[in-house]
Design a protein around this nucleic acid. Structure first.
Lengths: 344, 344
DNA sequence: TTAAAAAATGTGTTCGAACACATTTTTGAT
DNA sequence: ATCAAAAATGTGTTCGAACACATTTTTTAA
């Protein structure tokens, strides 16, 4: 382990006071050219790293981080985020960090906007935000930037040059993962890409998954398959899905692009032929069908870890002056009946 | 955020000096019953948590952690551990932690023992150890315990009541994961469990994988398969494997229990029929065959994260008085051609 | 009762970075 | 040359926990 230098050491070596060293390090106050050169000569020679422990003890400013995400009571997918956020809080409990979580109704843009107003009242230093509503989110982060508030997004990618960072999964690539899985599950026939309860035209993230899925089959140039997109909505989901099945007797596999594979499995599990099924997310109802082999694989988006990393990145930025990665992509976890328990 | 109390606050509320509060907190020196009660009454009322930042600034003892693992130059599987260890070091760079890594030759118990002697000379506070040599490792950790040195194992489980913790993968369960994967890959026929270059009688870890694999098929009671164990060694590996293939024309799938699936793929990729293949570990040579679909899945043991967690657990124990989990099992990551890049 | 020893308490210092403010030096104007 | 202002430097303090050591109080023995 290299010797750890202190400001006092540098002052002694350079022949100046610790006040002058401090002023050089922080470009603060006034320093003569002579003193500046003396100190910089020493700094060039040694690997000085400030004692971050000491720094944080002295600094009493509390950094205020807000998290804005959909209400897990309305969409259970987001439940793990709470744990992820709390893990981050606990890990940095000794540092001056305040983290506050706000939930918006994922079916109501007004809720999104109102919660944002509440957040602004707290004068946050940074906001971690799941930008479900694209248009509104773009305006919000622009406003943050104007106010000097750092914004980081997670789960849903938002193209914007004022966002500091994105934490999430490469959805295009996850579509390719699903493609490979379905290729193994099904030797030939029709594979449906199923969007459930999504406004397909506006849901960029399901489009990305579909693109990746199709790209996989283009890439391997496998002509044994027909791929068909199908977009179904509640409350007619069941009836529409039955009609789709009857209209496509060579249906062999289904790729569900949202968390709702369990709704498909509920129906396919009762058919007298096996239809392969790949979906997303470790909801309890999905897991039940995974364990009974009615769902073959799930792709884990790990919202808990997304939220955790989003908060940790911000904390480390404030506390340790650590660079925030522009984009942090999570692994694309493939889940089967036998490894599911390791991920929940 | 709750108010953070200091020792000074407690002293004021209790009507004693901060020295007395310190003595109560640390059961140090002498404290009268009266003062003890006064302070404890306050402590019962508030959630006092010491400022760990301040504590670590004052404490100048350097905790000495050693890591003993196989030489990645000899077995590349362990290469990621270096990065994992360095990540942990970097993350706690501001704390008084010294981490030193020692490599032993994984084919030579003397090397293991000699490195252990070197470690003992440094009077470590803790050792993270990959106990490849079961018998020798048991003696070593007993000695550590007698010397008050904390030992944590990773990757290979070692049954011992003096080891503080194990970080690794549930190998039995990983065998079940492989079972489910092979069940999907192959509808019927012979599946071989292949141990390559392992002294099967002594290699508990490949036995565990096999047990898990067989347990999966017992559990689903699927009679479409015959499962056969095969143990092959270099330098006759190729010849023996060809003989095995010719002796078993209905061979449909292979489960390789070690990192050496690439050696199998080298041969199966040239056959005029497809044999499904599931192996372990993201060695470059395995990844190449995964990308060309000659290996269908790999199970990632994530040695990097094992080493990282092992070191982090020790650091947090020393620095934050954090409990070390007795056993920390990593997720059993299923890797296909499309998500591999996310894990390397 | 008194003095010495033991018990108990209180005060000051340390860790290292950040920074306020006191003090010294330099510069510019008269 | 002198004085005032600006530039520059140095010293002290703060953050909170741990702990050494000075000081006070209580107990014990004669």
């Amino acid at each position: 382990m290299n010797k750890k230098y202190t400001i006092k050491d540098i002052a002694e070596i350079a022949g100046v006071s610790k006040g002058t060293v401090d002023r050089v390090l922080h470009k603060r106050g006034k320093v003569s050219k002579t003193a500046l050169e003396k100190v910089n000569t020493v700094l060039d020679r040694i690997d000085y790293r400030p004692n971050l422990i000491a720094r944080n003890l002295k600094n009493t400013k509390i950094f205020n981080i807000c998290v804005l995400l959909p209400d897990p009571k309305i969409d259970i997918y987001w439940e793990g985020c709470i744990d992820g956020i709390n893990d981050a809080i606990e890990e940095f409990i000794s540092f001056n960090i305040a983290v506050k979580t706000y939930f918006f109704n994922p079916t109501n843009t007004n809720s999104f906007i109102e919660n944002n107003e509440e957040i602004l009242k707290t004068s946050p230093d940074a906001v971690l935000i799941a930008p479900l509503f694209y248009k509104e989110a773009v305006e919000i982060v622009k406003n943050y930037n104007a106010l000097g508030i750092i914004s980081v997004t997670f789960n849903n990618y938002l193209k914007s040059n004022v966002i500091k960072s994105f934490v999430g999964q490469d959805l295009f690539q996850s579509g390719k993962v699903a493609g490979r899985l379905l290729e193994i599950l099904v030797k030939k026939g029709l594979i449906a890409i199923l969007h459930i309860d999504e406004d397909y035209e506006n849901a960029i993230y399901v489009q990305e998954k579909e693109k990746g899925f199709r790209a996989y089959f283009n890439q391997v140039n496998n002509t044994n398959y027909t791929i068909k997109t199908c977009s179904l909505q509640h409350p007619n989901f069941k009836r529409s899905f039955y009609e789709f099945i009857e209209a496509h007797p060579n249906l062999a596999g289904i790729f569900v692009t949202t968390s709702k594979a369990f709704q498909v499995a509920e129906i396919t599990s009762k058919l007298d032929k096996k239809i392969a099924l790949v979906g997303y997310d470790l909801l309890k109802s999905n897991l039940n069908y995974l364990k009974s082999f009615d769902i073959d694989f799930l792709i884990h988006q790990n919202p808990k870890r997304q939220a955790y990393l989003g908060v940790v990145h911000l904390i480390e930025y404030f506390i340790f002056d650590k660079e925030i990665p522009t984009k942090k992509l999570l692994p694309i976890d493939i889940i089967n009946s036998e490894n599911a328990n390791n991920y929940i």
